[in-house]
Design a binder for these strands. Structure first.
Lengths: 204, 204
DNA sequence: AATAATTTTAATCATTTGATTAAAATATTT
DNA sequence: AAATATTTTAATCAAATGATTAAAATTATT
């Protein structure tokens, strides 16, 4: 019983890894089986089909992304410098923990947009209902920049944080950074991104 | 003769479209043939194999990206507000013209990193030799922020510009924007991104 | 321990898919 | 116009790949 769950979980973890690296179309069920160290038939025994297994992995991936976004958006501490530091720090943590997640999900959406209409649903203008959105709106108004849609600032947080991970191989190449240098580069951004955001918001 | 080139070109354009949408693994040669309105065998007649055709499309894609980056990095006008406006404007133009290009290339790198080692080569720390890098360095020094690696600012330009395209479906979803709203959003960023960059550089 | 249920495996199937071939159609040259 | 070269097509092949099956191995139950 204990071992059953272990095998099933082992397959899902292998699937997650292979799907994230190769995408749905590029992943071979045999690759997943080998990665998991199991017989190919077991994959179908536990998960019926490649498609079903993929749906499972994808749903969990989307959930993770939603969760991290919700943390970012709905932290209810008042908006001042320290809050910006904190949410950026948390967000970088999440992305660092699963660096290939964003590119995986974005790539699958591009390959199969219609499938995601249902999966994502319409969260009723999710961002603009968030606490952070309203706080940014207030702050921008108070410094006379109410013509800026707070959405821009939120997209900037996400862009400046996630893009270095999405573009990592390319960035390492055009910058000449090696792995440790790149990691230091990311660590530096923990301080700098909040600083830049505060400038954008004329905060402090 | 005229018609030969047209057919050949038609196939390559169809391949570009299908590869960009589905990726190498997800693209069927039959899809490409159908998209081009030709018989499947013609694809192999002109390009030998799916792989060869893909290499061609990919090489051209990488070239386009390199080219746009070079424009950004090596503009030799002096660094002041107007220059920032100009390079960001140009860069948004390039990305708008081919919005699915970045995600395509980044996805293929993730699926097949080793292939890109050769393809990209090591351009001897490309960015840090650039004119823009040196200008940003000077500017940061002159306002007492020499501890900031200019690479950060360049990555910020690229992030804030490209990420909205890479993440477009997801952004539209979590923001509730429709297509025209999203386009207006991008247009707004033409003004805002230079403004934010000037704040980061304490320029003006 | 015997029986039953569950898990795992090896072998095989059927479909998809990249590629080839030989013939037909079309264009070019003589 | 005949001959030759080029382009296009329909049919087919072979390999890859997702999936199934029946039997073997293992674990749980009685």
């Amino acid at each position: 019983m204990e071992k059953d769950i272990t095998t099933e979980e082992k397959i899902k973890e292998a699937a997650r890894k292979v799907f994230q690296q190769k995408g749905y179309a590029g992943a071979r069920t045999r690759d997943i089986a080998e990665e998991a160290g199991i017989n190919l038939a077991l994959l179908n025994y536990y998960y019926r089909s490649k498609e079903k297994l993929f749906e499972l992995v994808l749903d969990e991936s989307i959930l993770e992304i939603s969760k991290s976004l919700r943390i970012l958006l709905n932290d209810d501490s008042p908006l001042f410098g320290g809050k910006i530091d904190m949410i950026v720090d948390k967000y970088i943590d999440v992305v660092s923990t699963n660096p290939s997640l964003p590119l995986f999900v974005l790539g699958e959406i591009q390959a199969n947009p219609q499938k995601f209409q249902k999966k994502l649903g319409i969260p009723e203008a999710f961002i603009s209902n968030s606490h952070l959105y309203k706080q940014i709106h207030e702050q921008l108004k108070s410094v006379g920049m109410q013509e800026i849609n707070p959405m821009h600032i939120i997209i900037n947080i996400i862009s400046m944080t996630i893009f270095p991970f999405v573009g990592k191989p390319l960035i390492k190449n055009v910058s000449g950074m090696d792995e440790p240098e790149f990691n230091r580069f990311i660590e530096e951004r923990r301080k700098f991104i909040p600083m830049w955001l505060k400038m954008m918001l004329k905060l402090n």
